[in-house]
Design a protein around this nucleic acid. Sequence first.
DNA 1: GGATATATGCTCAATGTGAGTATAGTTATG
DNA 2: CATAACTATACTCACATTGAGCATATATCC
Lengths: 346, 346
Amino acid sequence: MSSAKRGRATNTAQTAGPEHATPNAPPHAGRAEHAVKVELTAVLVAVAGGEPRVMTLDEGRALPSGPFELAHRSLQAGLRDWVEQQTHHPLGYVEQLYTFADKDRTGFAGPDRSGGESEARTISISYLGLTREREPSEGGWRSWYDYFPWEDHRAGAPAVIGKVIAPRLHEWAQAEKGPKRAERLERARVTFALDGHAWNDELALQRYELLYEAGLVAESCRSGAKPGEVLPGEALAGRAMFADHRRILATGIARLRAKIKYRPVVFELMPPTFTLLQLQRCVEALAGRAVHKQNFRRLVEQQELVEETGATTSEAVGRPAKLFRFRHGVVAERAVAGTKVPLTRT
Amino acid sequence: MSSAKRGRATNTAQTAGPEHATPNAPPHAGRAEHAVKVELTAVLVAVAGGEPRVMTLDEGRALPSGPFELAHRSLQAGLRDWVEQQTHHPLGYVEQLYTFADKDRTGFAGPDRSGGESEARTISISYLGLTREREPSEGGWRSWYDYFPWEDHRAGAPAVIGKVIAPRLHEWAQAEKGPKRAERLERARVTFALDGHAWNDELALQRYELLYEAGLVAESCRSGAKPGEVLPGEALAGRAMFADHRRILATGIARLRAKIKYRPVVFELMPPTFTLLQLQRCVEALAGRAVHKQNFRRLVEQQELVEETGATTSEAVGRPAKLFRFRHGVVAERAVAGTKVPLTRT
DNA sequence: GGATATATGCTCAATGTGAGTATAGTTATG
DNA sequence: CATAACTATACTCACATTGAGCATATATCC
């Protein structure tokens, strides 16, 4: 066996053959490959002013992104390059979200959608990044509830769900019949907590996808809108984004909401010292729901994730609060173990 | 603005310009892109004979995989094509795992690693698939514990951990000093449950990565082995695989072990009817640890995921067991809610 | 000096969970 | 056919977790 036949990268062998007995030959070696474009996209999150913020470009219509290039050492390195170049904001904690390649979601054909002749495939690899805002109002940061107004349940369920979303999803379900109708109704009930179902903050992506399918967000009518579907009312839709960036944002929100419940990642979003209420507000901003104050403290303290600095603060009215900092040793341990969050039942 | 400028796919615009004010222009439009190869890889899992099996090719050295092609409608569709073509096994439940692109992990240069001049980038998108084995001993299926012998704790911690892994990881840690040594020791303790730490079955990937870094698996010495690292002893290593397929497999195992604890996916692996013990054995095979029998039944029943068929079976000795089937309605609901698994403390 | 607001400590009930005991219904074997 | 061996299934118990609420402490504001 020639050494040329086992190049370093997968699939470099150019000839098909019966050499399957070689220890390391990929089973499909020799087939022709097709190149596609690879796009890196970042959901960069910070919390400031009690709001969960996401870094955007182009007047809030796009997430930081750029093509994966040969010069990049790795996917993450490529992403860091793009984000730092586009936003001048350094990237801290980063984790991969999802890789999308749906044909009809990447495009953004409007009423005048141009022909699809040069149908190049684009694969979009998305990442979640966590950081702190540096200057008070650095450009580009927007509350993610601008894009998903129905996701903020900190002061109870938003009116838009009962007044607009529920009835229109109901119409959408009625457009089907039999088991398909029942299925649509059930999806709507579970994801939007209708008819007594409990609100599940981690279903942010499923909710967006449901609205997309039902034709209730602006992105629906770009290319995938089926005839007969309800068309979007701007009041409902929340802010739209370029291509499938809002879907990627929803994926990031869902992932982060799930993650804060079992891994101590809130730290990445907090200043060096903070009060327990600030920490709670941060969690509430992300989860989009209220947290039981006393139980939150109990949890944080019993997990030994924080320690007192000795100092106190009295920036607002009321009894001054102790300042805490994270215990980096414990945080590192727990990065692999568990952390939880106590919610309020109502 | 010309319609040519807003093609359907992301980044088709070829000229840079000041048109940032257009509603949908990607912020980096106009930059040159670089093509890379995209590889789809499947971790296809079944449970048979009380063992968790994974579908392999090439004498167990590779996972089913193939390049993403223009003809594929989507990433999943491409994956299904490849798997069905290579294994003749239909694919049921599928979920995306991770997208890898590390330069020094995709290759497999042995002692005679060929030059890296044509350094094409390969991105590898991996998926987890769940099915049932069809015929008794269809080719290609192997126990995943052949690849990760240290992961099977159903009959207690495997001897290899105490006898081989722990001492060699200790040596590896001693090669560093100061905080780095402490860090290595702590990683070893937490992931391999040394010094009284509890075994966490979901850390399969972290364990493999640790062994890889420590030079204790065969894959370590292909390209990334640093001088001064311990070299692999074959007894320890478990079965090796082509390129980074074993890492992908570890990712799949970790994901599946986490998933069965909160989502009813075991169903995909079970025959239409089964006894509760069979269901338990399936979960145990996946989790790699023993489950408390009575509590397992309590959990399964209280979650109303199964219903009696009315029939009983008496294939082995002992009191005949009732046969159950999954309640597909509830399963569909819970696909979004929760399911849990009671473990045994020891 | 209230009124008001936040901080913080403590109790309680309901539920979840790991574990053990007891009993029932089979097959294998002498 | 009695008994051993084994699996199925029911029930109990101790303890940890968790959602909720009450009580008290210490500030600011008017």
